[in-house]
Amino acid sequence: MLGEQRIATMTRHPNPSLPNPSLRRLIQAEPFAVRQALQDLLNHFPLNALDPDQRGTVEVVLAEVFNNIVEHAYADDPGEIEVEITQIGQHLHCMLRDWGRPMPEAKLPTGGLPQFTDGLDAPEGGFGWYLIRAMASDLKYQRDAEQNLLTFQLEIDASSH
């Protein structure tokens, strides 16, 4: 009996074609909705299983990507952002989709660190893509059928749990 129940639980899988259940949300591209969405995402698997350091990294990268969509893709008309996160082994595979304006020249920003010599000429912005590139890997951008599709991976240390 117990064995049967366990099998029944294990086969109740939201997306059998993927190795692990994905975390998927559709969020409003607006700063306060982004803040709320980040808190919601971090409270759900697989993000709630990460150690605090990794959660911090994931939150920064997701926040920067969301903020970029809010500020640029949807600069004129607000819209929605679809996010899907799947853990495969030691990596989180992230996919974000929006229906806003394309990236300039349909390319990802290079994300160099703004130059400065001291505090007086320190940049007050332009850190976003730099942080994304510093923390994420395998960044890919595709513009297709009026959609922006961004995918990337975040390395996690699953063995620590």
């Binding site: 911090g56 926040a63 940049p123 332009g126 850190f127």
Partner: peptide, 9 residues
């Protein structure tokens, strides 16, 4: 606990 690039700016 959390600061993004806008917060840093």
């Amino acid at each position: 606990n959390f600061l993004d690039s806008s917060g840093l700016g």
